[in-house]
Design a protein around this nucleic acid. Structure first.
Lengths: 180, 180
DNA sequence: TGCTGCATGTAAACAGTTACATGATTAG
DNA sequence: CTAATCATGTAACTGTTTACATGCAGCA
């Protein structure tokens, strides 16, 4: 029926522990959930407004000098809504992997072109792996309570490692000497 | 700038070898690309109309009795458009994995609830693995020319195996006795 | 007769992104 | 002084899905 906007629950999730401003929520999303659940910046403020209207969060302005900051706090109704969402079976993943789409159609084109995409992808993934490892360190040192943040990250890392090794297998370790 | 509808290239991709009707394209999508690039049924016919208007495909009606079937053939311009798309760097993947989102927020709820989602997920993935293996057999026997269809499938299978083993690791092989 | 599969399509609603617009504060 | 960052928001557009609507053919 009414397919609820999932952005709502991402925001509620971050508000469970802390009262936060839209901007702060945006920063947290960028550093964490964006890696497996993308949200655009612009979706946050309208969604916060919606959540306010529904009574799932309450807003209060905080002033630092002339600077206004709208700080949001989750309500009991908001907690209930979050838990109700949480216990529902997750929807099947939605994928839109253009890289795989091109791999799929490589028989009709040239392997050289695809090889170039693979090279690029491999470089990207290695960079991402470094980033993930930094986040891993950070989580272990700074947020030892967030065991599931770490678990989620490790799932992501495992997938990265797999993709890296698949790409290297296929193309014979040409790049392995430099930056593995 | 103008972010082109990717659906166009999925359709062009399938038309590179064969002339096909909208329905047949839909069937092929369901069986193959839908596993990593989801398209809804309803997007096919309007996109074919668009492609016709752009001169990338040509349509001719075929009648079997009173039954009309619109068969589409790719044009030279269509081939060029496809190759132009193919050589562009793939856009970064878009993920929306509600399962991981829930895993991420498990610290704020209960592990029991999440465990239930994991059980369900594990069952789904095992089913999907069977499906993938059938497709693998089919491809090897029926479409030996499509080496990249097979490669794409093997990437998918590797990810499935990884997810299955991650889920089993976490939850101690409770289900390993029955249907592994 | 009614069900399933083949076959094509449209309208309305919704979600999501891009681009824009504004302004305060802080560090160099 | 100016660039970067903090901070909030809107309008327009585009893409996508949902639900609907139609009708033929074959089979039980």
């Amino acid at each position: 029926m009414t397919k609820e906007k999932k952005t709502k629950f991402v925001i509620l999730g971050f508000l469970l522990n802390d009262s936060l401003s839209g901007y702060e929520i945006g920063e947290m999303i960028k550093e964490s959930t964006n890696n497996f659940w993308q949200e655009s910046d612009a979706s946050i403020y309208p969604t916060l407004k919606l959540l306010t209207k529904e009574g799932f969060v309450s807003a209060e302005p905080v002033y630092v000098g002339k600077r206004r900051k709208e700080v949001f706090t989750i309500t009991n109704a908001g907690r209930e809504a979050f838990l109700e969402w949480f216990k529902r079976s997750p929807d099947p993943d939605q994928h839109r992997e253009e890289f795989l789409l091109k791999l799929f159609f490589t028989d009709e084109t040239t392997e050289e072109q695809m090889q170039r995409h693979c090279d690029e992808k491999l470089r990207e993934l290695k960079k991402l792996r470094e980033k993930y490892k930094e986040i891993e360190d950070f989580l272990i040192k700074q947020s030892p309570r967030k065991t599931y943040w770490l678990k989620t990250l490790l799932v992501g890392l495992a997938h990265l490692e797999l993709d890296i090794s698949l790409l290297q297998e296929q193309y014979g370790e040409v790049y392995a000497t430099n930056n593995n």
